[in-house]
Amino acid sequence: PLPPALTPEHLISRIMEAEPPEIYLMKDMNRPLTEANVMMSLTNLADKELVHMISWAKKIPGFVEFGLLEQVHLLECCWLEVLMMGLMWRSVDHPGKLIFSPDLSLSREEGNCVQGFSEIFDMLIAATSRVRELKLQREEYVCLKAMILLNSNMCLISSEGSEEPQSRSKLLRLLDAVTDALVWAIAKSGLPYRQQYTRLAHLLMLLSHVRHVSNKGMDHLHCMKMKNIVPLYDLLLEMLDAHIMHSS
């Protein structure tokens, strides 16, 4: 789906331009920090972010060339991973805290008020430490996020007869182009050749942790919904239900 003239450098700049703006919660975090208040703020924020995520995906070169159902499926599979990757990126300079938005950050202890959160919090904080350790660069970060989107249903797509036959090869070609862009970004650092490809491996290995935490988070959110602890907003509810449906 990519125009052949799009070099790795151009592709990265297009993906950088697609980055969503900073999203503010825009109201004081409801105090005291009770389970209901924290969940209310986080789901409110997630719902706002999801709207921007759709615009982001549409600006990834090649994405809108996919069929509408394919676009839906990709986003439904990856949305929490993309939200979590953004959260880790925002939190990278704040050890021990998660910066959900410029006006909402929570320490590990504050997150504990939500039942079942501490495990997910710890995994997010640990993954963020790894990002810090790797000194992830902005260009690398945007490539990884695009890869999460394009790779999200790679292991589901072949089992579904309804997909158009060229869809998978289109997806693979686009994923290759983003991989070239990531390799280009790593090469810019001037690292010795061997360290460039070990860095590529380390960056891609981050994604398996992100997938893992996202699955944990999805189960948690589903649980909160079932227990009626928090009212879910329309888009967030739709995305959660779709995910639960795909995975069952």
């Binding site: 615009s55 888009l235 995305m239």
Partner: peptide
């Protein structure tokens, strides 16, 4: 996925 479809098919401003 009504809302998602709606956002995907909206033309950028």
């Amino acid at each position: 996925h009504t809302k998602l479809l709606q956002l995907l098919t909206t033309k950028p401003e």
